[in-house]
């Protein structure tokens, strides 16, 4: 019997193209970036191995406190707002007939690119833009400002735009969770006199806790590596006041050509991201009905 007569051996020819492409586009770069992060590669001169110098620099250089600080702000608020607002939408939709139409409308912003939303919010937050016009109209002239050119207003404004785009996905996760909630338990609690906020905090939220975990981890993963919105709206500026780590990585690598240093920023983003991803995958795999 020749090698190819067996299905198991033929299978290699079916799997090979995908493995080779993923190997070239995904796996090789990961390994190469890791190696690069221990060198002083500048794209011109031969690279030298410099150990952990890039990483030490990342933590000691005062210039990089701002991006690290901004990334923490992003991770906290771009998780809390979309998850909380997503839950509020999902929970209130429960009591409405034909709420699927509302769901589609709330989800709509998530379907456009972050670049398009970023450009749109650039106009809304512009000095002569919509927000300022509304503020003066209702008599809050002292709040009128250049939202994207002042720190920390720019970071919070961008988190607002990001929340607009990423609330929909959280709402959908919670709708799946609420639909799967055992109704008897809820009815029993209602008969016992639980209502309003007590019902939400004591009964509903504990019951759909796994969905809160999944939504929050997904939000953490995505907000920690935020790039598109920041790049389109402020490019991390003015100066580097609104820079996040993903923007730092891009700037160091493709503007300043400090490749070794950029690689170390990428590795740092990955390490934190992998921790979130580990918990995320663990929660999703034990709760397969989300999205599968």
């Amino acid at each position: 019997m020749s090698f190819l007569n067996k299905d198991k051996n033929q299978a290699y020819f079916y799997v090979a193209p995908a493995v080779i492409l993923v190997g070239l586009i995904c796996i090789y770069p990961i390994v190469r970036t890791l190696v690069m992060s221990f060198t002083d590669n500048d794209g011109l001169n031969p690279a030298n191995f410099i150990g952990f110098k890039n990483y030490i620099r990342l933590f000691l250089d005062p210039n990089y406190i701002t991006p690290i600080y901004n990334t923490v702000i992003w991770t906290v608020f771009a998780t809390i707002f979309p998850v909380a607002i997503g839950f509020l939408f999902a929970y209130s939709m429960q009591f409405l007939p034909r709420s699927n139409y509302f769901q589609i409308l709330v989800y709509l912003p998530a379907t456009v690119s972050a670049a398009a939303a970023g450009v749109l919010f650039g106009f809304i937050l512009d000095k002569s833009g919509l927000i300022n016009q509304i503020l003066s109209f209702i008599g809050y002239d002292h709040l009128v400002r250049d939202w994207l050119f002042r720190a920390p207003e720019n970071t919070y404004s961008m988190i607002g735009a990001y929340t607009w785009q990423s609330t929909g996905i959280n709402m959908m996760i919670f709708i799946v969770g609420l639909q799967g909630m055992p109704k008897e338990q809820l009815e029993a609690a209602k008969i016992d006199g639980a209502k309003g906020l007590t019902l939400v905090f004591k009964i509903v939220i504990p019951m759909i806790m796994p969905y809160f975990v999944i939504a929050s981890l997904l939000a953490l993963i995505n907000s920690f590596r935020v790039f598109d919105q920041v790049w389109v709206m402020t490019q991390g500026g003015p100066g580097r006041y609104s820079e996040t780590l993903a923007v730092t990585m891009y700037r160091e690598g493709f503007v300043l050509f400090d490749l070794g240093y950029a690689a170390s920023v990428a590795v740092l983003i990955s390490l934190v991201g992998l921790v979130f991803s580990y918990f995320y995958l663990r929660s999703v795999l034990t709760k397969e009905d989300v999205g599968s």
Binding site: I25, C26, P29, I30, M249, L259, L274, S277
Partner: peptide
């Protein structure tokens, strides 16, 4: 495994 790492890991070598 191609879905696990953030894209920042791919950019420089690519």
């Amino acid at each position: 495994s191609g879905t696990v790492f953030p894209f920042q890991m791919y950019l420089l070598p690519l």
